[in-house]
Amino acid sequence: MDFAAAFTRDPQAAPYPVRCDATAAAVFAVLATVLALCVDDGRRPDALGWTLLLAAHVPLAWRRKAPLPVLLAVVACVAPYHGLDYMHLAPIPASMTALYTVASTGRPVRTVIVGLSVTSVTLTIQLLVNPHEIVELLRVSGWVIAMLVFGTSIRLYRQLVAGVLERAEHEAERKVSEERLRIARDLHDLLAHSITLIGVQTSVAAHVLVADPDRLDREALVQALDGIAETCREARTEVRTTLDVLRAAPEGPLPDLASLPDLVRSSGADLSVRTAAAKIPAAVGAAAYRIVQESLTNAVRHGGPGADVRVDVGLDEEVLTVRVTNGGAAPRGSSHAPQGVGGGTSGSGYGILGMRERARSVGGTLVAGPRAGGGFEVEAALPLSVRKVTV
């Protein structure tokens, strides 16, 4: 057994405590017998002395089940043993073990009370037996105090280790929760955008078929069907990539700003990127990509393929700004929050809530709501120095 693990483990939660303690008690009894026979530190035990000495070791089999009653039982046997001036060194291992168990399993107040009580009893007996042995009085008191301090130190060490382990478990649980939320956001952002585009393109194809069957626009129909097929291929590729990365590592795929042109082009929106050669952290770029993706999904879903959508990405000192406007031109360079934006989510589903969590995951903020001049606007501010935030 590892020595450090033996002190770290809760003694009352160890397997087979009675069996282990009974074995230890038998070993201490044999040691006490050897000391009583071989060491000249008092008179040799007679029948009563042997009875008291061996009886003091019996309660140790339950020392971890009932520490305080065991100590009282040991003292009840050891006190008259010492009082009759039998060999004083023999019962010391049993007495110290009982003291250690109380100190290592009890509260500090109980330990202090037990220490004072045991010291008082020990000193009283010592004064009655050897009233002139001042050095012996100090030695015995020192052993009692040292054992209590040692037991208390072990108890505090166990509490410290237990606290560290508990915090580690909570941190692991928090990381698992964050990972689940991140995967949920990735799958939502990935699939919602593709499915929305497929729905719009399918509607266009259906409209072409039923609008004027006699003058069927085959070119428009083929274009719509090709768009559906291309969107399906892209979605399948992204899902496969996501699953492959999730199987290989705890971090999922992180699309960056370089992927924005293809994303915006597929939605028919206008894009403006003003980041020059600035180095954008992967997490910030991924958050910006997913915010734009979800905003475009909502715009296409509610405004159709002909919606007037503008995406503007830029740098304001050390902050990456993302603005997606739908329905009317957004004032470029404006840094104020859109009017009428509340604290809750607009619309149905979890799109805006997910975007806010995306922004918070990198220490940023996001506001979304109707614009004063009509339409809808999403505006996010993402700091380039990523701060880990629990969402």
Rank of each mutant, 00 (worst) to 15 (best):
G340T: 04
A5G: 13
P261Y: 05
E318R: 14
A184T: 13
L138Y: 13
E133D: 13
G227C: 01
H82F: 15
P383V: 02
A184R: 13
Y289P: 03
I198P: 02
T8P: 07
E178D: 12
F3Y: 03
V273D: 07
V114Q: 09
T119Y: 07
D41S: 09
K175L: 15
L382H: 08
A146K: 10
T321W: 12
T119M: 11
N326S: 15
L54M: 05
P331D: 10
F376S: 01
A94C: 01
T124D: 07
L160P: 00
T105S: 02
A184I: 06
S104E: 10
P253L: 05
R236S: 13
I195C: 08
R9W: 02
S203N: 12
P17L: 04
W143Q: 13
D212N: 05
V34H: 00
L254M: 13
G373Q: 02
G354R: 12
A5I: 10
S272G: 02
E234R: 13
T325S: 14
L137I: 12
V264W: 14
N130A: 11
P69E: 01
E377P: 00
C38F: 14
A380N: 09
R19G: 10
L52Y: 11
L89H: 10
T111L: 06
A168T: 11
D2E: 07
T111S: 10
A277I: 00
T297C: 11
A269R: 10
D46K: 07
A206Q: 14
H57T: 07
T241W: 00
Y289C: 08
V222A: 12
H336S: 09
I113T: 09
G347S: 06
R215F: 04
H132P: 00
A380T: 10
H88Q: 14
G42P: 01
L116H: 09
Q126L: 15
A368K: 05
A248M: 11
L138E: 03
L72R: 02
S335F: 09
G333H: 10
V273Q: 08
V18N: 07
R215I: 00
V114A: 13
G314Q: 14
D256N: 11
I183C: 03
D21A: 14
T297Y: 06
L53E: 00
P11Y: 11
V118S: 02
K175G: 03
Y350G: 09
A248V: 05
A14S: 09
T321A: 11
S259T: 04
A146V: 01
A146P: 03
Y157W: 15
L99I: 14
T345K: 05
F28E: 02
G342N: 00
S267F: 03
T23I: 13
